[in-house]
Design a protein around this nucleic acid. Structure first.
Lengths: 334, 334
DNA sequence: CTGTATTATACTCATCGTGAGCACAAGAGG
DNA sequence: CCTCTTGTGCTCACGATGAGTATAATACAG
């Protein structure tokens, strides 16, 4: 039963780190012919890819161990927090080049957090700021240009162009919830919803590629594109990961996986803001984090702050036992 | 790459309904030779199973549609809310009967909610109260007997029997968080954590089965067992589903998928309590639900309440746009 | 060595959500 | 008519949260 050879199972990884105030993910260029990572037989060509590894049925006992193993081997990175993200198994994921020749691909995607460090292993991988792929998700310096120029009006057109009042209302509601229009707040977690709407609107390259057959985006061309595209459905996977980590921040102390052992409170805040794509109130953030028992001061000070020296803090692991949902950041909204 | 025939991909479903105050899941008896559901070639034998269906690579476009399709076909049920739960792919899932002959099985598990109704299709399926499988999870009438008689003391023994202070402290912490001992609250969501500890303790049948080779549990025997066992790792999958739905209740209005169009507030509360396994404060629940805009009254009254007639309410879908996390129930704790 | 910029940290205040209860309303059944 | 049962409105205390003011401690320019 279903041991048909036309099913392929692989693992994908969204590997996140934060450098300074920039959230980064590990990607590989599609041109690489890395024999282990990638090798996208049925992919589009030169576009970016998420790290990919096939599943060896004889290999490690668990999927997670398999993932940790090949990431270590190929990049030298030791993954900290790892969680399963989602399993993608729909047909027609990616360009419809030779639909009939393409096997059914089941990708089990994982989200992983690492402390920053250069990729050092055998793979051709590099860190990129994730807002390169999702420029409309970064609200730290006010509404992103992508939103102001184009997205909002494109959405209005899309709403107006629906057939009938009912469909129009549906679109209005959906867009409103996702993009925080008409009374709704902009919810940082809804990354996937937003990407999918933009896909439907044909505003991301992948949409046209999947529809028209093939659009080889040369580096630098299509300057008007919304964000850097990825191969296959990897940007969708990335959107899923981004949304997941933003949600997780609220109720699990996962940020600390991205930070060194000790850090100032501002550093912590900047990392949270980088992930959330939103600015936070400094004093309240401090209160939340200290009074919530998430951190404890080491007596030491960091003098490289530029102003008054800041105390260095460390994560209090005990908090896991004490509080139910020891997360932080991300205002709950209305 | 990995199109090896020794990988098998299938779908599992945790299908939930609530009858009166009893949360139920759809299970099948392992003895059935249903040609579609089940047919557990490498399973243990007579134990209960979750609905299972192989993945046909040629079939439906998405995994979720495949699932909806075969559930409709075999049980006549139209699934409401469906979400992907987790993908299980570890080796050695289930009895080690013939380890070498067993293919690597990747199971994509889904959580689905339905309004109650008898299974009517071609499959040999039946509803069971899920606390049959997890008797220690039902705190609606105070601490469950399973906790009082046995579990607590077994955990104490387990903690004491660890090698060294460090390991002892680790076990104490882990058990404390999971079972709400020593200052921690009992968190309804941690269903999987608890099941895994009981598994490690050897208190659930599956643990001994997996270790010893084979323990065929005859109906009625092993009265001292903690809960009704299931085949393979299906009880683990079920625990995952139970935990997920409890967590989801907090921030998504999923309960309404289990209720008829109109209902009294007490009915709603009972359903939430059934899922959460915890009693809630009536007046506050009412306030939460009404002032949160989750429901709206229809003028009608239900006179079959036993006391004063209660107003019938309906779910307000608009709430999805208005509030960020329109969930309910489950006290946040400490 | 003085002022200014920059960051760190303490404290206040209004508001709102939530846990816990009291009180009363409106039916059914003896 | 009394009592039981369920439904519904309201209060009160407390803690979490959003927003802002004030002050401390450093670097650096002039």
């Amino acid at each position: 039963m279903s041991s048909d050879a036309s099913i392929v199972v692989g693992l994908n990884a969204v590997i996140v780190a934060v450098t300074k105030e920039s959230p980064r993910i590990l990607t590989m260029s599609g041109n690489s012919t890395d024999p282990f990572f990638g090798d996208p037989l049925w992919s589009g060509g030169s576009l970016d890819l998420l790290p990919y590894g096939p599943l060896d049925p004889e290999a490690d006992r668990t999927l997670e161990l398999t993932l940790r193993g090949w990431v270590r081997e190929r990049t030298g990175l030791e993954l900290g927090y790892v969680e399963q993200l989602y399993t993608f198994g729909d047909r027609n994921r990616g360009p419809r080049k030779h639909p009939q020749e393409v096997p059914r691909v089941i990708s089990v995607a994982y989200l992983a957090l690492v402390r920053e460090g250069p990729p050092s292993g055998t793979a051709v991988a590099r860190w990129r700021d994730w807002y390169t792929y999702f420029p409309w998700e970064d609200w730290r310096d006010g509404p992103p240009r992508a939103i102001a120029e184009g997205i909002t009006s494109a959405i209005q057109d899309w709403i107006e162009s629906a057939d009938g009042d009912r469909r129009r209302a549906e679109r209005r509601e959906r867009a409103g919830i996702s993009f925080g229009l008409e009374g709704s707040d902009w919810d940082p977690d809804r990354v996937l919803d937003r990407y999918e709407i933009l896909y439907e609107l044909g505003l991301v390259t992948e949409a046209r590629r999947d529809a028209d057959g093939e659009v080889e985006t040369v580096e630098g061309s299509a300057a008007s594109e919304l964000g850097r595209p990825m191969d296959m459905d990897h940007r969708r996977i990335l959107a899923t990961g981004l949304g997941r980590i933003r949600g997780k921040l609220r109720y699990r102390p996962v940020v600390f996986e991205l930070l060194p052992d000790t850090f100032t409170l501002l550093r912590l805040q900047r990392v949270v803001e980088a992930l959330a794509g939103v600015r936070l109130h400094k004093q309240n953030f401090r209160r939340l984090v200290e009074r919530g028992g998430l951190v404890e001061g080491t007596g030491e000070l960091d003098t490289r702050t530029g102003g008054r020296p800041a105390e260095l803090f460390r994560f209090r692991r005990e908090v896991l036992r004490e509080r139910r949902a020891p997360g932080l950041g991300l205002p709950p909204g209305r």
